[in-house]
């Protein structure tokens, strides 16, 4: 569209306003994750993390304001380690609000959460899901595209028709099956299904495989390549962009998955970040700073991943729309 310059200006203005709105939750998360508990409860719309401090012997000490009586304020002073120490009486004028990045939210949160253990559990599930999905979906897509056999079309249509099925329908029988297998409280129910294909990704890969020139496959066959070798040495390398989409979406899906771990993981030590954070929120609902810090730590890897794979990502979102 050809635009007049004032139209461009209005559009830019609206976009800037909207982008501030859309960014605000991120900024709020970052700022709250660096605030001391006292400030979160009282600081009105202050995006800058601040804490109340007083001067003691020429040094600035963080304090916790307590009771106020007769124009005097009682404060408790935090020592270097962040532990509450002696109580002092000061005049309200002596208390200043100063920029204070409360990184203890991160260090304490990581210890209490426990972040590293949950991260390892999550990564384990993510990696296994990615391996399983990429392997199974590309094999199946090959079988549905380049091997001519009678059951191919019916199988494809059955697969497509299952995509409409809400997960709630299979949820209960699957839970019972995994219970009989003794898989409850293990990661098996979360990773084994990914080795058995995924209708949407198979569909996506099949579209991609079909665009590969027939001559290439025929030539490989004439040269005596086995079908397995054609898949491994021709199809997989050629379809790397599509496989990247599958891997990326699977990773993010597993990283963000909540319902799966909620149903199948009972033992706290086996929790993923997602379920761990949700349970943590129920237990320590007052620790806003720590919770925000942990949310941020859970979000940052995904955002970094997005920035490194942006092209693949946008491509994938478009592909998922084009199928409609």
């Amino acid at each position: 569209m050809h635009l007049k310059s004032w139209q461009t200006w209005v559009a830019t203005l609206v976009l800037t306003a909207l982008s501030v709105l859309f960014t605000l939750p991120f900024i709020w998360m970052l700022s709250t994750s660096l605030k001391v508990p006292e400030t979160i409860q009282s600081a009105y719309m202050d995006l800058v993390p601040r804490a109340p401090v007083i001067d003691v012997d020429g040094r600035e000490m963080r304090v916790r304001p307590m009771m106020e009586k007769n124009g005097e304020q009682e404060v408790q002073v935090y020592d270097e380690k962040g532990e509450l120490g002696e109580t002092l009486r000061v005049t309200p004028g002596q208390i200043r609000q100063r920029l204070w990045l409360h990184t203890a939210n991160y260090s304490e949160g990581i210890r209490a959460f426990p972040f590293v253990a949950y991260l390892m559990n999550t990564l384990m599930i993510c990696v296994l899901c990615v391996v399983g999905t990429v392997l199974s979906c590309s094999l199946v897509a090959y079988g549905l595209t380049w091997v001519t056999w009678r059951g191919r079309e019916p199988l494809f249509w059955v697969m497509l028709s299952t995509m409409m099925l809400p997960a709630q329908v299979t949820m209960i029988p699957l839970f019972l099956t995994f219970k009989h297998l003794g898989w409850i409280n293990t990661i098996l129910p979360l990773v084994v299904p990914s080795f058995l294909g995924n209708a949407f990704f198979i569909f996506l890969l099949r579209q991609f495989y079909r665009s590969i020139p027939r001559d290439l496959v025929e030539a490989a066959r004439i040269d005596g390549c086995s079908e397995l070798r054609i898949w491994a040495q021709l199809m997989v390398p050629l379809s790397r962009p599509a496989l990247a989409v599958v891997a990326l979406f699977t990773f993010i899906g597993a990283w963000n998955d909540f319902l799966g771990p909620l149903i199948y993981l009972m033992d706290e030590r086996k929790y993923t970040l997602s379920i761990g954070l949700a349970m943590y929120q129920n237990q320590y609902s007052a620790e806003w700073g720590q919770m925000m810090a942990m949310s941020l730590l859970m979000t940052v890897p995904i955002i970094l991943l997005f920035f490194f794979t942006q092209k693949t990502f946008i491509q994938g979102v478009k592909l998922s729309g084009i199928k409609g």
């Binding site: 939750p25 963000n256 909540f258 997602s274 949700a278 949310s295 859970m298 995904i302």
Partner: peptide, 8 residues
């Protein structure tokens, strides 16, 4: 992640 956005 949905849980993180729920916290925010």
């Amino acid at each position: 992640p949905m849980v993180a956005s729920a916290v925010i």
